[in-house]
Design a protein around this nucleic acid. Sequence first.
DNA 1: CTAGGGTTAG
Length: 686
Amino acid sequence: MATLPSVAVLKAAIDNPRAIATKPRARQLHAQILKRHGLSAASLSFVLSVYADLGLLRDSLLVFRALPSPAPPAAWKSVIRCYASHGLAADALASFSTMRALGRRPDRNVFPSVLKSCASLMDVRLGEAVHGCAVRVGVDGDLYTGNALMNMYAKFRSLGGDRDSVRKVFDMMPQRDVVSWNTVIAGNVQSGMYGEALAMVREMGNANLRPDSFTLSTVLPIFAEHVDVRKGKEIHGYAVRHGFDSNLFIGSTLIDMYAKCACVADSYRVFHMLPQRDGISWNSIIGACSQNGMFDEGLKFFRLMLKDNVKPGPISFSSIIPACSHLTSLHLGKQLHGYIIRAGFDDNVYIASSLIDMYAKCGKIEKAKWIFRNMELHDIVSWTAIVMGCALHGHALDAIALFEKMQMEGVKPTYVSFIAVLTACSHAGLVDEAWKYFNRMTQEFKINPGLEHYAAIADLLGRAGRLEEAYDFICRMPSEPPSSLWSPLMTACRVHKNVELAEKVAERILQVDPESIGTYVQMSNIYSAARRWKEAAKWKVSMKERGLRKKPACSWIEVRNRAHAFLSGDTSHPYYNKINEALEVLLEQMEKDGYKPNTSEVLHDVEEEQKKQLLQHHSERLAIAFGIISTPPGTEIRIIKNIRVCTDCHEAIKFISKIVGREIIVRDNSRFHHFKDGKCSCGDYW
DNA sequence: CTAGGGTTAG
């Protein structure tokens, strides 16, 4: 009779991955052993361990079922490990309990995978029971078992379990290795105990253990969160010195850390240094761009990832969709949405929230609402995204109703979600509602109001014409108000024609931001409107003296998947002649309908006829005229403008919408205006 | 037995 290959020989063959670590080789071995030794428990058990080590679940189970019951402990161990490594925690645990029911004594090799399964199911009671079992069997001093125990208790901590269990296990372990330390450190990071975590990194040196790649990638996110590039760079240096900088895990944490510290250039450097990249490296660099407002660059990396044959996963999409929102690229957003649906990622909350935001920002509020309604679970971010979307489109009552419904469904409002409701109130002139929410935020929810909340209230008071109140409110802020808070009030002063307050506001703005071009322009316009030409001229002159030049307003429109941009008074577009013709025809109609150009707010030093021409060539009108002549009748026209639509254009677009019988959607810096049948969704509320 | 990347912000 042929002899069984010695266990040592076979083990050596297995440990050498080039020799055996393939499915066909395992099958070959399986056949050989069966041929020579038949179906003995020992030989089957050995074959099983080979399959299990290769992670071949199906083959492992086939062999296991061929074993006479009760199977030997080694066979149980193999099956349980194989289940656990496939994420089949429930099956792993079921096997473990069957094994014990059949009177098989578990050895130290089973406990790590069993404990891991308890951890992944977050089954505290079972985990503790298994711990007890390990103690009774006398293997709780085993290194791997101890490490698995600490890992499990660290995961349980998020359920509010015993905070000291990890430490207790750690202290009682007869020996510890790097994994032990890394596990405790990771546990501390997960629980937000950053100080503890870093202290332990230093302490492990005393135990003669050097931090390895696991330690570094665990600890780096701390500096990302604390925005501490100096410490992050130290770790980076350590990684380079130890040759860890080509490690993909370290690479992605470094890219992310630098991005969160606003050092995207360093993120780039790390990314380009990587010897190879996986999906996560790509996601990190895409996220780095997105998070720092470099949306075009983010899209560039996304395309490079596809070119590199790396399949984008859910995280890739949730990082890149915001780029479409900010670039208001509906075309691209829709394409990505299509991909998301085909890949089956549309049930992911992160992706759904970013899609809601994207559609809302691209003018498709109904589509945003549709996505929201069709989500199975709403988290705080998706609620906030839809409330903000409604706010942006002036659907204030919807926004408030949703905000209330959110709380009825047990979701607690946050800092950001209060910005969203307050914005909704602000865009609809709901002063009392806004105060109610502002007070509830501070008193009931103990949220410290930030700049954005102050901005919403100040903007609202200004729009409502309660200018003095707004001024006092801003002055009462606990910190020095930045110019971004004063600017909307300046606009409000112009709209509500309060020259004196405008002067005071201008002074405050120029204190913090002497280069504020907008302030000079607005002041000049405000005085013009009040027919105080001298002062108007004075502001213009002092602007010139400072070498400040007004930046032209810009509007753009997507037609057949291409963006067309128009500057005020721009004649360079290839279709300029046609656009101008269309505008003239429109103007004739508009005036017949009763439109009177309101030239009071601008440029007193030009002829009346010329003023009309200038108004008629404001960027949004050029874009709209282009939209009318280049898209099918009846379809909506969507325009994005980089500053607020002027009062006269607002009036004019109402006429245009009626004359051409089309819905015209204009988004300015702060909100959408839907013009239809001669009316605007904002109800002319400024 | 231990490790990396994500959504909302007038």
